[in-house]
Nucleic acid binder design. Structure first.
Lengths: 112, 112
DNA sequence: CTGGATCCCTATCGATACTG
DNA sequence: CAGTATCGATAGGGATCCAG
C-alpha cells in the first residue's frame, strides 16, 4: 500500500495525452457504455445520464478518431449504425480500472 | 491481454469524478512533480514545462482541496511553503500507472 | 433513428502586471 | 519566493431546430 513510485516523467506526459481524450466530459462514460455492449446511438445515450445527442455525436467522433471505437454502418433503410470498442479501447478501459478501485477506496469525497 | 471487462457502471462514474480533478490541464504533471519530490512552488513550476504561476496556484489549491497534496507553511522570514503528496495522492499516482503503460504500448500512432 | 447546424452562454486558460 | 489581480481570447457544452 505504501510502495515507492515507479512512475516516470515520461509516463506522466503520456497520461496527460490520454487525459486529453478520455478526461473530457462524458467520454469515459460513453467508452464504458460501448465497452459493456451498448451499440446503438440511442442506446448509448440512454445509458449515460444527462447526455445530449450533440455531445454524444462529438464524443463518438473523437473516440473514433482516437482509434478507441469503431463505427460500423450498415446501409439498410433506414441506415443502421453500431459502435464497438476496438482492441485499443478495451485495453484503455482495463487501464482505467485501478482508477475506479482507487476512487472506491477513498469514497466518499471529503471537501468540494 | 484480452481478458473480459470487470469494470462496472459504478466504477465509471467514479473514474469520471477523478477525471474532473486530475484530467485538467497541468494537474497530473503537477501531482507527479510533487510526488517525485518537488516541494517548493518555484521548483514545481520549473519542472512542469510551460506552466504559469497563475495556473500553478489554481491547481495547487484544487489538489489541496481534493486532499491529494498538503500545503505546509513554515512562518519563517520570508515564509517557507512546501507541498507534499498525501497518502491519497500517492495512491492516485499509483493508480495512474497503468494508464502510462497503456499509452506507452500504443504510442507510435495516436492520430490518424 | 442518427445525427448535422446554429445560437449563445459560460468556464477555462494564457498573458501581463503587481505585491508582502 | 510565492503568490494575486485583471483582462481578453477561446473552447466546452446546453438548447433547439432540422434533415436523410
Amino acid at each position: 500500500m505504501t510502495e515507492p513510485l515507479h512512475i516516470s516523467d515520461e509516463q506522466c506526459r503520456r497520461v496527460s495525452g490520454i487525459m486529453e481524450v478520455v478526461g473530457r466530459r462524458w467520454t469515459s462514460g460513453i467508452l464504458l457504455a460501448v465497452g459493456l455492449g451498448a451499440e446503438r446511438f440511442s442506446e448509448i445515450q440512454h445509458r449515460v445520464d444527462g447526455l445530449s445527442s450533440r455531445m454524444l455525436t462529438v464524443r463518438l467522433r473523437e473516440l473514433e478518431q482516437a482509434g478507441l471505437i469503431d463505427r460500423i454502418v450498415t446501409p439498410t433503410i433506414p441506415v443502421s449504425v453500431r459502435y464497438r470498442t476496438t482492441q485499443r479501447g478495451l485495453e484503455l478501459l482495463r487501464a482505467l480500472q485501478p482508477l475506479g478501485q482507487y476512487a472506491h477506496r477513498w469514497e466518499p469525497e471529503p471537501g468540494r
